[in-house]
Write a protein that binds this DNA or RNA. Structure first.
Lengths: 210, 210
DNA sequence: CCTAAACTGCACACCAGTGTGCACTTTTCA
DNA sequence: TGAAAAGTGCACACTGGTGTGCAGTTTAGG
């Protein structure tokens, strides 16, 4: 028996790992346009043959699962550093952060509604959703956020609003500053701030414009 | 040659036509959940065999086309009677009207982004979209609607907001009055009205609550 | 009531996508 | 530089869905 079973004889990870990532990136890009795209399309987009893809992922599901896992990690990690005492501002900041992860967010949005990972994905995203819900609740209590819509519902509407902007961004190429501004305005609008208030809040919050 | 070529010998439309409608209804319901559902699923839902479906629609595409056509007709017809001098109110009213056609609207929303009818469908919907764009533009000029977002973009965001609420309504069964209120609030929010203003406007507009 | 219309059920051809096996070439890294 | 790892290309089996043909049954309506 070999002394150390884990690291097999040799292991040329360098380019293999690079290709694995290329595949995930390609999957992200392609599935964003068409969530039913074939593995062939994805492999080609990554500059590989379909056959090679199977060297990295045993099945289509495995590929998608890996893609979603990576997406969740990225998004959660990006969001978790966001902090702000004022709930509306916090929510706007979260929105803007998500905007910076457009692709990952959109793919994930697609697969929360279709495919075999709906529930697993939804579960993985609970920390983020809890955070949003919590901010909404606190904001309501403080009077900073409208109280004429149920907190849970409002939280989901905010989520929807962000996704709307991301969709818009995908079809008509929007530049970064306008995109961020759009997300922030949409979120604040749904939370109950009038146009003037929202604009004031954004102008007063440097973290909100890159 | 037969004297009258059009009405062939006999024609038992009564139940045949009823089944055709049942198929369209089933298609609407099923495709709303899963836009890739099989014809077998649809036929079964309609209480017919898959084979019978082909007696009404030659291909899957033809069925979907018929479904979309019916949807467009319904929606356009429903919206076209809506009138109001105040742009925000008008837009809220349009939103509420769409809410009453949830199923049709959602199916159409699905197929504006996928399938072979994207463009035809988008084209068929231009009157509605033009109407929204126009209201937004007028409202901006009057100062009734925020002017810090490009009119076209804002129009699409409003569209997105309505769809968000319809999604929400689909997953968590919302009753009619709350649903209408939600749509109205979302639309008004995006247009730039603060929570208080929006509430006031809705309370002052009886057509906005059924 | 009896005939054509509508539906059922089954068989079949066809297609696109998935997943696998295998022989062969290219690449990397020890 | 040489051996293993990674990738290519092709063939193949399998699947689920589509669309059609046909023989037989049910049903509406003149």
């Amino acid at each position: 028996m070999t002394p150390n079973p884990d690291p097999p004889a040799r292991s040329r990870r360098r380019d293999a790992e690079a290709n694995r990532i290329a595949l995930l990136d390609a999957a992200g890009a392609v599935l964003n346009r068409d969530p039913d795209a074939s593995l062939d399309t994805i492999a080609t987009e990554a500059g590989l043959s379909r056959r090679a893809l199977y060297g990295h992922f045993a099945t289509r599901e495995e590929l998608i699962h890996a893609l979603l896992t990576r997406g969740v990690a990225r998004v959660l990690q990006a969001v978790e550093r966001v902090e702000h005492p004022d709930p509306p501002t916090l929510l706007a900041l979260i929105g803007v952060t998500l905007w910076r992860e457009v692709e990952a967010v959109r793919v994930m949005a697609q697969f929360t509604v279709r495919g075999p990972f709906q529930h697993e994905l939804a579960f993985a995203l609970t920390p983020l959703r809890d955070r949003v819900r919590h901010a909404v609740t606190v904001g309501r209590a403080t009077g900073r956020i409208r109280d004429d819509i149920d907190a849970d519902v409002l939280a989901r509407l905010v989520e929807g609003a962000v996704l709307s902007v991301l969709d818009e961004a995908t079809r008509s190429r929007i530049d970064v500053p306008t995109g961020e501004r759009l997300v922030a305005l949409s979120v604040l609008a749904l939370l109950g701030l009038g146009a003037a208030d929202a604009r004031a809040l954004i102008d007063a919050t440097p973290e909100l414009h890159s």
